[in-house]
Design a protein around this nucleic acid. Sequence first.
DNA 1: GTCTATACACTGATAGAC
DNA 2: GTCTATCAGTGTATAGAC
Lengths: 182, 182
Amino acid sequence: MATTRDQLIEKTCELLEMQGYHATGLNQIIKESETPKGSLYYHFPGGKEELAIEAVSYVGRIVLNRITENLAEIDDPAEAIKMFIRNIAVNVERSGYRAGGPITTIALETASGSDSLRETCHRIYSEWQTAFAEKLSDHPRAESIATLIIASIEGGVILCRTSRSRTPLERVADEVAALIAG
Amino acid sequence: MATTRDQLIEKTCELLEMQGYHATGLNQIIKESETPKGSLYYHFPGGKEELAIEAVSYVGRIVLNRITENLAEIDDPAEAIKMFIRNIAVNVERSGYRAGGPITTIALETASGSDSLRETCHRIYSEWQTAFAEKLSDHPRAESIATLIIASIEGGVILCRTSRSRTPLERVADEVAALIAG
DNA sequence: GTCTATACACTGATAGAC
DNA sequence: GTCTATCAGTGTATAGAC
């Protein structure tokens, strides 16, 4: 029971992750999601920016859940986070290096453009960071390490997609684990 | 003695860093650099893509020199790299969080678009990584740590620009230094 | 709520005079 | 080498019938 609104949001998430904000046109979104343009402006009167905000919020929530669930599966924080990052590396490779980092491109493109999109990305990054910090709550530098984790994952995705190799994220996984273990 | 060609490349570097590839139009480049459009296609017959490749190569070389010079100033690798990253944090703040990471946005936007731009970014990231790895040559995991450094700087810039705070890169600097010192 | 047709600005690119 | 005028295509957004 996918509503028109949901179809638009999901297709927008997919295209934004692969192409970014400015390279993704509304015409492509309505064509690939098979929804008429009139419906888009009915559901999202704010146009492209409002649609992107909803899409980024949606995918941010999904990723937050995945972080929480995956980290809960392994007791040792260093090992849990290492496996989580290695899993991202595999997924980036599986996408043909076309996806990975669902909000990274948007965050950069809109950092000096749309303030509402920038704030949405900032909120999501904060939520992700909190999830990692909670897993590291025994560590004296939990918050600081959580920031490094988010930063190195985002940067690692860039390096993997640019080099068409999963090695960068695998190295990030190993080094982050080494840092946590001390 | 700035030639027309150099003016175009330098202005393109500036705009690509702040806005990204797709948000930067050729009209804006020629207007702000005060060079006519005819000259652009005379110097860069390949159009926007060729101009961007030249711009990315140019700024990549400048940054490589800055990495080499700055790292040579302090003997201890952990301290040298820490200060280098803290310096980036200050520069990002100084730009009003509108600049920083001169090729990051381009690397992401063109990862699934232009193959020649993607390869150019890949080459530059490799050169930067080698510069850090050489400074860490005494460390058994020099290459792996150099990858983490590039990734966490690129990601740290994203977090700083998105949150309008220099804290993320300062934390990255501290954690990377902790990792190197062991 | 859904859909089509269209307005209007702007994009990258080119032609041709100078 | 430089500059202007202009092309064809696409972008976001809107109007109005159904």
